[in-house]
Design a protein around this nucleic acid. Structure first.
Length: 451
DNA sequence: AAAATTTGACCACAC
DNA sequence: TGTGTGGTCAAATTT
């Protein structure tokens, strides 16, 4: 708790510094960033102090020579803190309270976390960044490392961020080349708020690039609009596929902090999807993130669920392609949905039924989120789904919880499931006939079970 | 200079 | 009819 208090103090201090800096620099963005860099430095110093106090504990765990451990810890701090993006106040803001609270108990064992990390590095013998890239999700250690992964996001997003990893880097040539946006401005846009959500007391330095305004799916999207929405508070970005004659669109919903919480795909691409790459692309693209889950949710389902008016609704994905083991894993963490981003595929009555049989509704559930959610439930001792709570008068949401992992779906795209839910009604009613083609037996069974 | 993004305005729809 | 929201346009701005 003392740590969180110091964090608050830091935040206040930082805000003060920024205020002063803004006054002096007249709001110059560059200057502000520099100031925030100073802030990071300050924080780093503070962090180091904290680390000093933790050092003894760490040594007990790792039984490493003091100098060695200290060097390691400092190295960790440097790598972590120096990449904390601008406007990092969000990282320490109240938005983190949720995770801070959730992980408060864990924080009490902060040494343990660091120990785990150190231990992992010890065992693997990799540098921090190497670990971040190569680690695979099989244990809590991996989870912990995964949490740290975001910390390097700003330095080399295109290489290290989970999202970018998901990008089919070496995948076959897509109809349109990968967006250069992948490594650009939007990154900070996403990383920062994400960190704000994902970080906890001990994870305050973490920067989780879970969301970016444009999920790398191999298509080229042109943003044509953005709107602020009140409920949920945040913004909505509108994208169109830049491919000629392609009317595919997608809407990305972000929360107030810029964290993408939902992605709705509308319409089908009139061009071939990116060829899936079974080897390189997959291994690089996000295997490190785990198996994928694939499901199909359609307008029809939404309507039906709406009529049912459940306060909360949660189902398992109905159409998926992962292996049995993957499925097991997914079901084991099916209720993990903290801050998950949702990708929803909405068919917009475009004539391509055959293709749409495999319309994937893939939700990515970052293991980090899963881990945090796990910790939360562990602490609270329940498995409730907070996000499923509906506000009075609001349309019910169809929430599908599923752990995320990575894999190749039947449509040749690479998806990673990270959350799933229904949102407000779709303005484009779906053709029932088409719908029929979208609902396979499993879908029907699941839907039927809901009534 | 071109392309992409941002953002205010506009329109349609629902309540 | 007035208001709020969702979606889109397009000029301005940024990259």
């Amino acid at each position: 708790m003392a740590e969180s208090e110091s964090l608050e103090a830091l935040e206040v201090q930082n805000n003060e510094q920024k205020r002063q800096g803004n006054e002096q620099n007249d709001g110059n963005l560059v200057e502000e960033e520099e100031l925030e860099g100073d802030y990071n430095d300050d924080e780093e110093e503070d962090e180091e102090e904290e680390e000093e106090s933790q050092l003894s504990e760490l040594q007990q765990h790792a039984e490493l020579p003091s100098s060695q451990m200290e060097e390691e810890v400092r190295e960790e701090q440097v790598k972590t803190l120096t990449v904390v993006p601008s406007s990092s106040t969000a990282i320490l803001s109240k938005e983190n309270d949720q995770y801070a609270d959730d992980l408060a108990g864990l924080k009490g064992n902060s040494a343990l976390e660091t120990h785990v990390e150190a231990e992992f590095k010890d065992q693997v013998g990799l540098s921090h960044q190497e670990v971040l890239v190569s680690v695979t999700p099989q244990s809590s250690k991996a989870q912990t490392q995964n949490q740290l992964q975001p910390s390097v996001c700003p330095t080399s997003l295109s290489e290290l961020s989970p999202t970018s990893v998901t990008q089919p880097i070496s995948s076959a040539p897509s109809p349109t080349p990968p967006e250069k946006r992948l490594s650009s401005p939007e990154v900070k846009n996403v990383c920062i708020p994400e960190a704000g959500h994902q970080s906890s007391a001990k994870l305050k330095t973490l920067n989780v690039p879970v969301a970016r305004t444009s999920i790398p799916d191999g298509y080229n999207w042109r943003k044509y609009g953005q709107k602020q929405v009140k409920s949920p508070k945040g913004s909505r970005s509108y994208y169109k596929c830049t491919y000629s004659d392609c009317f595919a669109k997608k809407i990305e919903c972000s929360d107030h902090s810029g964290h993408v919480i939902e992605i709705v795909n509308k319409g089908m691409h009139s061009h071939d999807p990116p060829r899936k790459n079974n080897s390189t692309g997959e291994s690089r693209g996000g295997l490190s993130v785990g198996p994928i889950l694939q499901t199909t949710v359609n307008e029809h389902t939404v309507r039906m669920l709406k009529d049912s008016e459940p306060a909360t609704l949660s189902i398992e994905p109905v159409q998926e392609t992962p292996t049995i083991s993957e499925r097991k894993r997914q079901s084991s963490s099916s209720s993990d949905e903290n801050k998950e981003t949702q990708i929803k595929e909405e068919d917009v009555s475009e004539p391509e039924p055959k293709r749409r049989q495999a319309i994937p509704l893939i939700w990515q559930c970052w293991r980090f989120n899963v881990f945090c959610s796990f910790l939360t439930r562990l602490k609270k001792g329940n498995l409730e789904c907070p996000k499923a709570v509906l506000k009075p008068g609001k349309k019910p949401k169809f929430v599908v919880h599923a752990a995320g992992d990575v894999g190749i779906s039947g449509d040749g795209y690479r998806w990673r499931k990270y959350g799933q839910k229904m949102v407000k009604g779709n303005p484009h009613p779906r053709n029932p006939t088409q719908m029929a083609s979208l609902i396979d037996m499993d879908d029907s069974a699941v839907i039927a079970s809901l009534f």
